[in-house]
Design a protein around this nucleic acid. Sequence first.
RNA 1: GGCCCCAUCGUCUAGUGGCCUAGGACAUCGCCCUCUCACGGCGAAAACGGGGGUUCAACUCCCCCUGGGGUCACCA
Length: 481
Amino acid sequence: MKKVRVRFAPSPTGELHLGGARTALYDYLVARNLGGQFVLRIEDTDQERYVEGSMERFLADLDWLGLAPDEGPVQGGGFEPYIQSERLESHQKIAQELLEKGLAYYDFSTSAGSGGFEDEAYRAGRVIYRGEDRNLNLEVARERLANGETAVIRLKVPAGKIEFNDLVRGKVTFDLATVDDAVLLKSDGYPTYHLANVVDDYLMEISHVLRAEEWLPSTPKHLVLYDGLGWPRPEFAHLPLILATDKKKLSKRVHGEGVWIGTYRDQGYLPEAIVNYLALLGWNAGGDQEFFSLDELVAKFSLDRVHKAGAVFDPIKLDHFQNHYIKQLTVDDLAKRLEYFISSDLDRDLVRRVATVVQNRLVRLADFESSSHYFFELPEYEKEDLVFKKSTAESSLMGLDFAHQALFSLDEAGWQIEETLNSLLGEVRDHKNLTNGDLFWPIRVALTGQQKSPSPSECLWVLGKDESLKRLTLAKDKLGQ
RNA sequence: GGCCCCAUCGUCUAGUGGCCUAGGACAUCGCCCUCUCACGGCGAAAACGGGGGUUCAACUCCCCCUGGGGUCACCA
């Protein structure tokens, strides 16, 4: 059986986005599931769009997601180089072979940039591009080249129909009469995607080509190349697009930075949440299960369950996965992951206790410090805030007073256990004939200054005896004024 | 416009001819828990785009229509 080798081939022109990450994930899953290799190849043949540092960020993002490649520019792997611009010789050599075989031709007729492709022509439903020099004699062309003329090399699309079996879409057919003579080698000597991608996939022995559906229309060009060169075609799987709420392909230009993986990482999303949610955008295991670890995905993934229709990315649902995985974390792990997002001067024991009580409600790690600020600094609030809507200032003051007395008498051991604090407050309430609103509410506000917060006993536990009593005293003073 | 792809609740989806009175999840709305907010529990509302076939039987198969999307560069 043929070796399974799946590649992710991003272009270093920006940041890794949701769609790219999902493709990389499926690449990884297919490779792992079939016991093959996951290969990373950087497609940087467009010098103009190249962005410095982009490749490094791709690598970091993949790594963060847990999708580190088996082979690639960093780890090597036996099919070097993994950076496309370093494989120019192969591309140019194959271009010449194509010329010799009459599968491509030098095209002098098109000046750089316009290429003869005019919008109006397409709008009018006009024909496909066929270069004027299509049948120019190769020797003549080479002479003109030698005389200093410039030309591109174009694919000479043959007549007929071409079809292939897409692993997610089934049989797809194209009439080659509707396929343009695409540029294969630019006048600067660099290959276009169509040439480089095919050549490199062949040379790197790629068995499965997974890519987004937007590539479907150019597939016949690639097929013509494989067939013409006598190379075996890899398996193709065109993945459904990830859509924005407007049902259009997700793009930075119109949908903003929420398309970038880095945006989510910086906000404190967990990679396991992103991976899990992304996996489900276009695939499912067939049942009702929705939470999957990466290993489970590897075990259950298969291309024949990948959907054909595009899927809308819903950030609200991502939050659901995020919260789920946050709740799964041990406190130690949560504290560790929080480290990157919090101020260096915060007391780490305090951070750990805060993390314990806010874990259920936390979504973005980056929001941790600001949403829990009152634990780290003295809260500010108005006197009136201390009184529950169904209570009175007198009862609230009593509540604070009795609570202070009881808590003051509690030893340090008691303060270590939240449940002890909670039942102590319960006793105070019962013995002093207070309502929850008379007791718990003012304590919460005294401790946090907030209308919404973790329960009073949890806040007491977080803040500890000294700080808690201090805040209760402050509140009593404020209310007594 | 040409070519190609697609089509189940608002969204992600289950469904591979009878198990469907179309299931689950998110979101929404109720209720419970309750000192608040979350978490959690319970419940409600919510979909097979339309028309033809095929079949004893279509969400499931075929055709047409409609609708949506992608693509049409010396970018990938």
